[in-house]
Design a binder for these strands. Structure first.
Lengths: 231, 231
DNA sequence: CCCGGCCTCACCCGCAGGGGTGTAGACAGC
DNA sequence: GCTGTCTACACCCCTGCGGGTGAGGCCGGG
């Protein structure tokens, strides 16, 4: 695994940091929100949004890359250039140094691994809100939390992401590039995903995906109600 | 081309024959209706319906096989057994003798080629309504009329049907069997259809189809208004 | 410790799909 | 007559996909 760069944090700010959670799959954005509910005195989730940019000023826009396709809708540059966003943070599995470097070069102020536990994720967000630039690639391979389409059907996060990209029409090679894993790993995920959902061909997988929430949503939720939140 | 069996007709009945037009694609059902509008003193289109069976008594149910997949929704046997249907007529491109024989064995009272001009089609329907059993396989390869999804985008009827079946997830071999043409012909239609809609892979073709009306509809229209009809 | 699950990767192999080329017949329009 | 379009079919070739097999590391639970 790539070397980890951990963040150090001073103290909690007096005012919660306003955060927008960005991803084209509503269930992913909601899963992120649920992940942070224990930290709602430090983090105020004010918006869940797809690739629509943000609607109001936020301190941090946390951009979850689940099944995002480059060039689709809002790109990182658009987010970075958006005057309503204080800091753009990428939240991704793909922590290859070249990808991280490319994102930083485009002006993001944080690049965080999906394997970070919630507490560490929140610490990084707070530090970034204070002006730090944080790269934290995590310690292991397993996603720490969150939600994704197909979870109820038993798909792992990786299987779901690969299936979501299949549903968007990408080839195996495209998916390997997008996710940063090898073509062989992509095929392995496809195999296991197909077995799990009971299909054997790509066309039937696409149709299954379309019928089971794997089409990207285009939604915005303002001041979302987060179950279990103290507010 | 297969030998043609032409119908002979006595005289128009005093009361219009009540006809339901059955196909899963609304545009196909509407196209059939438009095809018959010149004959609305003889033919009364009382229903456009997908694979939902008929809702009221009709003399003839004209079942257009465009992109129908066996086993989907209503089968021929269901239609033949439906007490509300006087006679079931199949309207299809696939006029292979084995297919025609199979349909007749299942109780349909007519099997008509899509290459029949509207007038001949109507004559056959009238004769069937009077109790005749008619098989008319037509004289040439070109569809005479009607409408289909993708027509506005320049797809021929054959290309559209193949694309509709692709959009339903069928393999090339499945499509060859469904349509009664060879695998090589299917590939030719795929090639030309892809060129026309600007895609190069099956997944992108499926997604294109879904965005352009190639998903089967599940609708019923009662007493449809047919443009140009005298009633 | 063992096992199962998840992530990751490799390699082998056969087949489906899609690119190309060509042929033929029917029909309509110029 | 020629050309273009539509339907139909053939054959060649290559690549992508999906089935199989196997391997390794990490983590959590019994």
């Amino acid at each position: 695994m790539t070397p980890s760069t951990s963040a150090t944090v001073d103290s909690a700010p007096a005012t919660p940091v306003r955060v927008a959670l960005l991803n084209d799959y509503e269930v992913v954005a909601h899963g992120l929100a649920a992940m942070m509910r224990r930290y709602d005195h430090q983090i105020e989730v004010v918006e869940l949004s797809a690739g629509l940019g943000v609607h109001e000023h936020v301190d941090v826009a946390l951009y979850d890359t689940f099944a995002q396709v480059q060039g689709d809708r809002v790109d990182l540059e658009d987010l970075v250039a958006d005057g309503d966003i204080g800091h753009v943070v990428v939240f991704s599995w793909n922590v290859a140094p070249t990808v991280v470097r490319a994102a930083l070069d485009r002006g993001v102020h944080g690049y965080l691994s999906k394997t970070l536990p919630a507490g560490q994720l929140v610490e990084c967000i707070l530090a970034i809100a204070r002006g730090r630039v944080i790269v934290d690639t995590g310690e292991d391979d397993r996603i720490a939390g969150g939600d994704w389409p197909g979870r109820e059907e038993g798909l792992t996060a990786r299987e779901a992401e690969v299936l979501a990209l299949i549903t968007q029409g990408l080839s195996n090679n495209d998916i390997a590039e997008r996710t940063g894993v090898s073509i062989n790993s992509v095929k392995s995920y496809i195999r296991s995903a197909y077995r799990r959902i009971g299909v054997t061909t790509r066309p039937t997988a696409i149709l299954w995906g379309i019928e089971h929430g794997f089409r990207p949503d285009h939604m915005r939720v303002r001041n979302p109600h987060i179950p279990g939140s103290s507010r």
